[in-house]
Simulated scan of single mutants.
Amino acid sequence: MSRPTTSLVSRLLAAAGLDLGIAVRHVVLNVVAGSVLLPRPLRRLVYLLAGVDARTSNVFPGVRLTGTALSLGEQTFLNHDCYLDVGKGRIDIGARCHLAPAVMVLTATHDLAAADRRAERYLTTTIEDDVWLGARATVLPGVTIGRGCVVAAGAVVTEDCAPGGLYAGVPARRVRDLAPAAPSAPSEAVLAGGRA
């Protein structure tokens, strides 16, 4: 084989290997673990075996993960159809957080300064303890949402959210301060792995 042909074959094999890895990860994390037929405790076990730091079983079917660089705190709840972009970035979600249906948390971004590398920046997105993200809220890469925040349905979080606030809009802005939560014991439903 000529040198250009060998180079082409090498690139094709490398691309095929990458695609195969993505396909296997998708089958394990989204087809098997995301199935409505898999009980939540078994879903958590699949996530743990795949390398996800899942300290909760409250992940409902249809949640889509693009990788395993994910930490889910105790008693955190992910509703149906959430999308967590952890292919190359990282997402840390604290304890007692609630993500409503179709929430999107992203880590991949674009570097507008370098024309030849527009989509090769991956950040850590952090959601601290006791946060509630409303239905279809979007959290952009590298953002930190502070403890005790509520993000309204449909909001797009483009920058850090200071603790204890209600954020709404596109882009999300703090619309009011929230009273700090009183310490309380977890409900029996949460302790049993059910909805609060």
Rank of each mutant, 00 (worst) to 15 (best):
I93A: 04
R25I: 03
T76L: 05
A23R: 15
G89I: 10
S57V: 15
D116W: 08
S184D: 10
V24A: 12
F60N: 13
V175H: 03
S10Y: 01
P101A: 08
G89R: 04
L13D: 07
I127R: 09
L45W: 13
T124Q: 12
G21L: 01
L65C: 04
P41R: 08
Y83E: 00
S7M: 12
F77E: 12
M104T: 14
R96C: 12
A23K: 11
R195M: 13
N79S: 15
L38S: 02
L12R: 11
A179Q: 14
L42C: 06
R40H: 14
V63W: 07
Q75C: 11
E128G: 05
A185C: 09
L70H: 07
W132Y: 13
G146L: 11
V46W: 01
T109I: 07
V46Y: 01
G164W: 02
G87H: 12
L65T: 06
H110D: 01
A16H: 12
P163Y: 04
P101I: 06
G51R: 05
A185N: 05
P186M: 10
G165S: 11
I127P: 00
L42W: 14
P39M: 06
R195H: 11
Y167Q: 06
V46G: 01
A155L: 06
A168W: 10
V36E: 09
A113N: 13
I145G: 11
L45H: 10
A119S: 13
Y83H: 14
G87M: 08
W132N: 06
V175N: 03
T125V: 04
G134S: 11
S2G: 15
G194H: 08
G146H: 09
L99R: 05
I145Y: 06
